[in-house]
Design a protein around this nucleic acid. Structure first.
Length: 106
DNA sequence: TTACTGACCTTTT
DNA sequence: AAAAAGGCCAGTA
């Protein structure tokens, strides 16, 4: 039985909203907390389709290697500057230390 | 209904 | 370390 679309999407949105300032979460992490382990791709779709409409902190979502998934000239620079403005540090390989900045819900 | 797509992930080369 | 392969999900044509 497949899950109704609005439930999964609403959960994804709700969880993204919980990521605090100065922290980041991965797509897969969001998917797991939304109750669907393999829905990482859906997370990206939700962000793409309604990050603006739902007023989501889209910039706090990065991929599992701690890097920004957006391509240069396609939002990458904006996301990076938004994160840096929140105090997130990027190392020389342009990576974020997930152990330190990764969101760990309580 | 099938085929393709996207801001992905994990395992295996 | 880096790249390829296979998997997974829902929306759109």
């Amino acid at each position: 039985m497949r899950m109704s679309r609005s439930i999964l999407n609403d959960r994804i949105i709700k969880i993204i909203r919980q990521v605090p300032e100065g922290r980041v979460a991965t797509y897969g992490q969001i998917a797991v907390y939304a109750g669907n382990r393999g829905a990482a791709r859906q997370v990206s779709w939700v962000l793409h389709s309604s990050s603006d409409k739902e007023n989501l902190p889209w910039h706090r979502i990065v991929n599992s290697s701690g890097r920004i998934s957006l391509k240069p000239q396609r939002g990458y620079e904006l996301q990076k500057s938004l994160l840096q403005a929140e105090g997130v540090f990027f190392d020389e390989d342009d990576r974020i230390d997930l152990e330190k900045y990764g969101w760990n819900p309580l």
